[in-house]
Nucleic acid binder design. Structure first.
Length: 1108
RNA sequence: GGGCGGGUAGCUCAGUUGGCUAGAGCAUUCGCUUUACAUGCGAAGGGUCCCGGGUUCGAGUCCCGGCCUGCCUACCA
C-alpha cells in the first residue's frame, strides 16, 4: 500500500484517541486521501469486468461544464449528487464509470475571450485573425479546464480521470464528423434561409436559449401610408417602371364606402395608418395587411400603398392574423384587456424580412406581393445592424438618406423625416402620433445587444422528423407519457418506453418540448467550435431552369450529377451531396460533406474549388453526442486501446443527473442522437460478454431512431438560489465558489449540506454571507456539514479509544444479547435499508437525514452514552461497537468520502468479529473504503421488541432529565429513583441509571421531600436531588416546590387538552364505525394514558399542598 | 397566453398512498469546560400549516376557487 503517511497506520493498534486531534481538520486529510485513491486507481472502470460478466455496469456521464469560468456552487451540487451515485454503486459492486470532461461552449467562451482581448489588448478578433484568435481561446480553455478539473478533484469526485474528455478533442471531433455526415447524407441536415435571432454585435445567429427577454420603455409610432391607384401593365405580371401611380382621394374612398372618409377634406390624398414599434423597418415593408372582418377592408380592395420616400408600391392584404382595434371587436370591453387591440389601428405593416410573423404572413400572400414587382423579402440591414442597400434592398428611391445608419439612428431619422413630410399635398404629417409603450424585447445573452430577426443561410437539423423528436418521446416509460399506445401488442423497439424522469413531472416538460419542436439551427457564425464539415462551390452554368428554385427533383438530379466539368475523376459516391439555389445570384450551390476521416477527399474537393464552410456548429451538437463520443464512437479502435469495450459495457449509461434548464437543450438531443445513430440492436446481445466477438460491431449503422437510449434515468435536481431567491450570478456577486467552502468548512461538509438540501423541490435557497476573515462568500448552512463531520470524527476517536487497546479476538460471539446492542443492530439494519432505498429513488435528503440520525441521535446520543460503563469488559459489545461504526462509515462514505476514508484507515485495523446478518465486505482495491462493500443487513437484525423496550426506556430517561433540569439538580449529581421493581427489567434499569445519572433505584416507598414524575400514568419519585446543605438552605425547598407546581400545572393543562381532543374523536359516532379498528384502539389507549397522566399529576400537585 | 413548482416555527426546510398532541437544523432562553466531541451535552419556549369553500369519521395532505411568489415556454404591430 502506497501510503503517503505511513506513520498513522503503523500506530493504529495503540491507543489512538490520544494522537488524534479533537477536531476534524479537513485540510490535514483531503489531499492525502485523494493521493491514495489515485494511486490505487480506485475509480478506473474496467469494461472487461462487465463484458466478462463479473460485474454489472453502472455509468454516468458528467454534464460537461463550460470552460468559460470556474465552477460555482450549482456545479458543486450537480457533481456531488453524481458522486454519491457513483460511489454508492461502486460499493454495491457495480463496475462504475463516471466519465468526466468539459464543454468548449462555443459562443460563451468566444464572447469571454473577445471581451478579454478587447480589455487587455484593445483588439477585436477580426484584427487578430481567425488562427491567432483560436489559439488564444485554446489557451484560455486550457487554463480553465485545469481549474475545473482541480475543483472537481478537490470536491472528491470519483471520476475516471484517465478517461477525461473535451468536446473538441480528437475523439469527440471524430464523433461530430461522423454524426454530421450521417445526418447530412440522410437528409436530416439541410441548408435553409430563415429568419434567425441575429446578434448584430457578435454578428452571429444565436439560439433562443442564448437570448433573454427584457422589458423596455418604448413607443408605438403611428405612420401614415398614402393610398394610390397603380395600374397593372397589360398582360398581367409585375408593374413596369416607370410606375404609374395616382393618388386616391378621400372623396373616392367615401364613394367606395370607407367609413369615416367623409370626415377628411375630400380632394386630398387618403392614407391608412399603421402602428409599429419599429418604424425603421418600414424600408423593408412589402405589404400592408388588414383583417377581412374590418369594415374598411372591402373599400380598399384594388388600391395600393405608395411607401413614403422609397416609392415602392405595395399591396393591401387581407389576413385574419391582423388584430382588430378594440372598438371594432365584438366585445370591446373584453378587447381592452389586450394591449395590442388597444394600440392597433387595424392596419399592419408587413416586413417579412425582419419579423417572424410578417415572414409567415408575407409568404401566405406571396403572389399578391410579387404582382407588385417586389420580392416578399427585402432585407434592409447589413450584418452589423446598419441600414444597407447591399443585402437585398435595391429600390432605394429617396430613402438613400437612411443608408449607413445604425438601427437606433435610422429610427430617429425615419421619425424626423416622417414628421417633416406630409401625405400628398395635405398638411397631415406622415407621422400621425406617438404613444408610450412598455414591452419586452429579446436581447443576446453574450453581447446584451437587442436581437435582430435577420434573414440568413443556416444549417438545420430536421428534428421534426419522426426518427428524431417523436422517437425521443417514444422513449418515455409508459407511466410518464401522455401518448396513447396504439396497441398493447405493439412491438417496442430498442429504447422505447424505458426513459424515466425523477421527479416524474419533468417528463411533461420533455414531452411538450418535442411536441412543439422546430427544426434546430446548428450553424453559428463564430470561430470557436467544430467547423461545419461541408465544402461548398457556386456553380453558375448549370443546365437547370433557374426559375424552379425550390424544385426538389431538379436539386436531386443535380445532387446526383458530378461536377459537369469532370464527371469521372472524383469519388462522389463517397461524399454526401446537397444543393441549394441562391435566387440573388441565380447560382446553384453544391454542398459536399465528405465522410469522416478522409483527408484525401477533402483535398480533392478543395482542388476543385470547393471551400469549407466558415461557420461552426452549435455547441449542443457535440454535447448531444457526449454519451457516445466519450466512449469512442464511432470507432473505439481508432480512439485508442483504452476504449476497447467501453461502449458495449457502458452505453446505455444508467443515470443522467442535471438541472432542469438542460432538459430541452441537452437531454432531448442526446436521446435523439443516441437513438438515431447507434445501431438498433444494441448492446449487440445479452449478456454483453458475447459482444467481445472477434469482429467489432458496426457502430455506423442505425438511422431509424430505434436505437438505444443514452441513459435510462434522468434525475433533475434543484437550482440553488441565494437567500433572496435570486439566481446566483457573477454580476450580482452572490455566487459561492466551492473551493472557498472547501477551504472554510471542508469538502465533506459542503457535500453533506448539499445532499441534505436536495429534496424534490425545484429550487433551494442558500443564504450567503461574507466571511469577515477572508472576504470570501460563504454560507452558515455549511456549518451543519462541518459539525456533522466533526461529530463522526469524535465518535470514531472515542470508539477507537475503547477498542484500540483490545487485543483479544471477538470472533466467537456473533449474537449480542444485551438490549442496547440488539437495539443498535436493529437501528443499523433499518438505516441500511432506508439509505439504500433513498439512493435508488434519488432521495438525497432522506438518505443524508437517515444517516445523520443514525450517527448522531442513535449512535452518539444513546448507544455510546449507554455502553460507556460496560463496553470495556464486554467483548460482545465491542464487536457491536466496531461493526456499528464500520457500517456507519460505509453508509456515509458516498456523501462524505474524505473523513470516512480517513477514519477507515484506522478502523479497519481494529479487531473485528462478524455479526450474524450484517455483511461488511472487504475493500477491493488498496484497503480503501471507497472500494469496500456496501453494508447489507438481514431482516433478522430488525428487532421490534428491542426497539420498543429501548424506546420506552428512553422516554423514561427523558422524563427524568426533564425533572432534573426543572429542579435544577446539579449536572453531575446522582439521584435516587423510587419505582416499583416491576417497572424496569435489569438491563433497562441499568440504562436508566447510566443515562439519567441515577445512583440507585429504590423499590421501597416514597420518601418525604421527593419530587414526583409521571410515567405511563404512574407516579415515580426522585429523591436525593441536592446535598444536605443545599436542601436545608433557606428557600431551597420552596424553590423545588414552586418549580414542581408549575410543571404539574402545565402537565395537567396539556393532558386536559389531549383528553378533550381524543374524547371528541371517540364520541363522533362515525369514527368508531368507519375508522379502522386499530386506529380506534390507538385513540383509546392515548386517551387512557392522557387521563392517567392527568390524574397522577393532580395527585402529585395535591400532595405538594398549597404554598401559602 | 400555455406548462410546472412553492407558500408549514424568527430563518432554511421535512412532512411517503388522508390517521399523532405537526417535525428537523439554525437562531432564541436556561443549565453545563460532564474524560469522544463547546463544531459539544441536557432542558425549554416558539405554529390560524396563505385565504375561502368542499369531500371525509378524520384534511398540512385530496377536490374547487382566490391571493402571493418563483421557474420554464410561447408571443409581443
Amino acid at each position: 500500500m502506497s501510503d503517503s503517511q505511513p506513520s498513522s497506520s503503523s500506530s493504529a493498534n495503540s491507543n489512538l484517541s490520544g494522537e488524534l486531534p479533537k477536531q476534524y481538520k479537513p485540510a490535514e486529510h483531503e489531499q492525502r486521501i485523494r493521493a491514495k485513491w489515485d494511486a490505487a486507481k480506485a475509480f478506473h472502470a474496467d469494461p472487461q469486468r462487465v463484458l466478462k460478466g463479473e460485474a454489472k455496469p453502472y455509468a454516468i456521464v458528467i454534464p460537461p461544464p463550460n470552460v468559460t469560468d470556474r465552477l460555482h456552487l450549482g456545479h458543486a451540487l450537480n457533481n456531488t449528487l453524481q458522486d454519491v451515485l457513483a460511489r454508492s454503486h461502486r460499493m454495491m459492486g457495480y463496475e462504475t464509470l463516471w466519465m468526466p470532461g468539459t464543454d468548449h461552449a462555443g459562443i460563451a467562451t468566444q464572447a469571454v475571450v473577445e471581451r478579454r482581448l478587447k480589455k487587455d489588448e484593445n483588439l477585436t478578433r477580426q484584427q487578430l485573425g481567425r488562427e491567432k484568435f483560436i489559439a488564444k481561446v485554446q489557451s484560455f480553455k486550457d487554463e480553465y479546464e485545469a481549474i475545473i478539473t482541480e475543483q472537481l478533484k478537490l470536491m472528491g469526485c470519483s471520476c475516471d480521470w484517465d478517461r477525461q474528455r473535451f468536446t473538441m478533442d480528437d475523439v469527440c471531433a471524430r464523433a461530430v464528423r461522423e454524426a454530421f455526415f450521417r445526418l447530412f447524407k440522410d437528409g436530416l441536415i439541410y441548408r435553409g434561409k430563415r429568419l434567425v435571432n441575429w446578434d448584430p454585435v457578435l454578428q452571429t445567429a444565436v439560439a433562443d436559449d442564448e437570448c433573454y427577454d427584457e422589458e423596455i420603455d418604448s413607443f408605438f409610432y403611428y405612420l401614415r401610408y398614402p393610398l394610390v391607384h397603380a395600374s397593372a401593365p397589360t398582360g398581367g405580371g409585375a408593374f413596369q417602371a416607370p410606375r404609374q401611380m395616382t393618388p386616391v382621394t378621400w372623396n373616392e374612398l367615401a364613394r367606395r364606402g370607407y367609413p369615416g372618409a367623409e370626415n377628411h377634406p375630400g380632394e386630398q390624398q387618403a392614407w391608412v395608418t399603421v402602428a409599429t414599434t419599429r418604424p425603421e423597418t418600414y424600408l423593408g415593408d412589402t405589404a400592408v395587411a388588414i383583417n377581412p372582418k374590418d369594415p374598411r377592408a372591402k373599400s380598399l380592395r384594388g388600391l395600393f400603398i405608395d411607401l413614403p420616400l422609397v416609392g415602392r408600391i405595395i399591396p393591401i392584404l387581407e389576413d385574419d392574423y391582423v388584430v382588430l382595434p378594440a372598438a371594432m371587436q365584438e366585445d370591446p370591453e373584453e378587447a381592452k384587456k389586450d394591449p395590442k387591440a388597444m394600440f392597433a389601428t387595424g392596419f399592419l405593416k408587413v416586413t417579412p424580412a425582419h419579423d417572424a410573423n410578417d415572414y409567415e404572413l408575407g409568404f401566405r400572400h406571396k403572389a399578391a406581393i410579387e404582382a407588385c414587382g417586389n420580392a416578399v423579402l427585402i432585407n434592409i440591414f447589413a450584418p452589423d445592424g446598419s441600414i444597407s442597400d447591399k443585402h437585398g434592398w435595391t429600390d432605394i428611391g429617396d430613402a438613400h438618406l437612411f443608408v449607413g445608419l445604425k438601427r437606433e439612428a435610422a429610427r430617429k431619422k425615419v421619425l424626423e423625416e416622417f414628421k417633416a413630410r406630409a401625405v400628398g399635398s395635405s398638411s397631415n404629417s406622415l407621422l400621425a402620433e406617438t404613444k408610450p409603450y412598455r414591452h419586452s424585447v429579446k436581447h443576446s445573452d453574450r453581447s446584451k445587444a437587442i436581437i435582430e430577426p435577420y434573414l440568413s443561410d443556416q444549417w438545420y437539423v430536421k428534428v421534426t422528423d419522426d426518427r428524431l423528436a417523436p422517437a425521443a418521446n417514444r422513449a418515455l416509460v409508459e407511466e410518464q407519457t401522455s401518448k396513447q399506445q396504439s396497441s398493447k401488442q405493439q412491438i417496442k423497439t430498442n429504447g422505447d418506453g424505458s426513459l424515466k424522469f425523477y421527479p416524474a413531472r419533468y417528463a411533461k416538460t420533455y414531452e411538450q418540448w418535442h411536441d412543439n419542436i422546430r427544426d434546430w439551427c446548428i450553424s453559428r457564425q463564430l470561430w470557436w467550435g467544430h467547423r461545419v464539415p461541408v465544402w461548398t462551390k457556386h456553380l453558375l452554368q448549370l443546365p437547370i431552369d433557374k426559375s424552379e428554385t425550390n424544385d426538389k427533383a431538379a436539386s436531386d438530379s443535380f445532387a446526383n450529377t458530378d461536377d459537369p466539368a469532370n464527371p469521372e475523376d472524383f469519388p462522389w459516391s463517397e461524399c454526401a451531396l446537397q444543393s441549394s439555389h441562391d435566387p440573388a445570384t441565380g447560382a446553384w450551390i453544391s454542398h459536399a460533406c465528405p465522410p469522416a476521416g478522409r483527408p484525401d477527399i477533402i483535398e480533392a474537393l478543395e482542388a476543385k474549388g470547393y471551400v469549407q464552410d466558415t461557420d461552426v456548429l452549435d455547441t449542443w451538437f457535440s454535447s448531444a453526442l457526449w454519451p457516445m463520443s466519450t466512449m469512442g464512437w464511432p470507432n473505439p479502435a481508432l480512439a485508442g486501446k483504452d476504449f476497447e469495450g467501453l461502449l458495449q459495457a457502458f452505453n446505455p449509461t444508467t443515470t443522467l443527473c442535471t438541472a432542469r434548464e438542460i432538459i430541452t437543450l441537452w437531454v432531448s438531443r442526446m436521446v435523439m442522437f443516441n437513438r438515431y445513430l447507434m445501431p438498433e440492436a444494441w448492446p449487440p446481445s445479452e449478456p454483453r460478454a458475447s459482444a467481445r466477438a472477434a469482429t467489432a460491431p458496426d457502430l455506423t449503422t442505425g438511422g431509424q431512431g430505434r436505437g438505444p437510449l443514452p441513459f435510462r434515468n434522468v434525475f433533475i435536481h434543484a437550482v440553488i438560489q441565494d437567500g433572496e431567491g435570486r439566481k446566483m450570478s457573477k454580476s450580482l456577486g452572490n455566487g459561492l465558489d466551492p473551493l472557498d467552502i472547501i477551504a472554510s468548512h471542508g469538502s465533506d461538509a459542503m457535500r453533506f449540506t448539499l445532499c441534505q438540501m436536495t429534496t424534490q423541490t425545484q429550487d433551494v435557497r442558500m443564504p450567503m454571507q461574507k466571511d469577515p476573515s477572508t472576504g470570501r462568500n460563504t454560507s452558515p448552512k455549511f456549518d451543519l456539514g462541518r459539525n456533522f463531520a466533526n461529530k463522526l470524527w469524535n465518535a470514531a476517536r472515542f470508539t477507537m479509544s475503547m477498542l484500540g487497546g483490545t487485543t483479544h479476538p471477538t470472533s466467537d460471539i456473533p449474537h449480542p444479547t444485551s438490549l442496547v446492542d440488539k437495539w443498535m443492530l436493529s437501528r443499523l439494519a433499518t438505516a441500511v435499508s432506508e439509505a439504500t432505498a433513498a439512493i435508488e429513488q434519488f432521495e438525497y435528503s432522506n438518505y443524508a437525514q437517515s444517516v445523520y440520525d443514525l450517527l448522531w441521535r442513535d449512535f452518539c446520543d444513546w448507544y455510546l452514552e449507554a455502553i460507556k460503563p460496560t463496553v470495556a469488559s464486554d467483548p460482545r459489545q465491542q464487536a457491536v461497537l466496531r461493526a456499528s461504526l464500520d457500517t456507519i462509515l460505509r453508509l456515509l462514505h458516498p456523501i462524505m468520502p474524505y473523513v470516512t476514508e480517513a477514519i477507515y484507515e484506522q478502523v479497519r485495523l481494529l479487531p473485528a468479529a462478524s455479526i450474524d446478518g450484517l455483511t461488511l465486505a472487504a475493500p477491493r482495491k488498496g484497503d480503501l473504503l471507497c472500494t469496500a462493500g456496501w453494508p447489507t443487513a438481514a431482516p433478522s437484525l430488525r428487532d421490534a421488541a428491542a426497539e420498543a423496550a429501548f424506546e420506552r426506556t428512553r422516554s423514561l430517561v427523558t422524563a427524568l432529565r426533564e425533572a432534573r433540569s426543572q429542579h435544577q439538580v446539579a449536572p453531575k449529581r446522582k439521584v435516587t429513583l423510587h419505582a416499583p421493581a416491576s417497572l424496569l427489567k435489569p438491563d433497562e434499569a441499568a440504562l436508566v441509571q447510566t443515562l439519567a445519572l441515577v445512583e440507585t433505584i429504590d423499590t421501597g416507598t416514597q420518601p418525604t421531600g421527593a419530587v414526583a414524575i409521571t410515567f405511563e400514568g404512574k407516579q415515580l419519585f426522585l429523591s436525593n436531588l441536592r446535598d444536605a446543605a443545599a436542601a436545608t438552605a433557606p428557600g431551597a425547598t420552596g424553590s423545588v416546590n414552586d418549580a414542581e407546581r408549575e410543571r404539574l400545572t402545565k402537565l395537567i393543562a396539556d393532558s386536559e387538552k389531549s383528553i378533550a381532543t381524543l374524547e371528541g374523536r371517540l364520541n363522533n359516532p362515525g369514527y368508531a364505525q368507519k375508522a379502522p379498528p386499530a386506529m380506534v384502539k390507538q385513540t383509546q389507549d392515548q386517551l387512557a394514558k392522557a387521563k392517567a397522566d392527568r390524574d397522577a399529576a393532580k395527585a402529585a400537585l395535591a400532595a405538594l399542598g398549597s404554598n401559602a
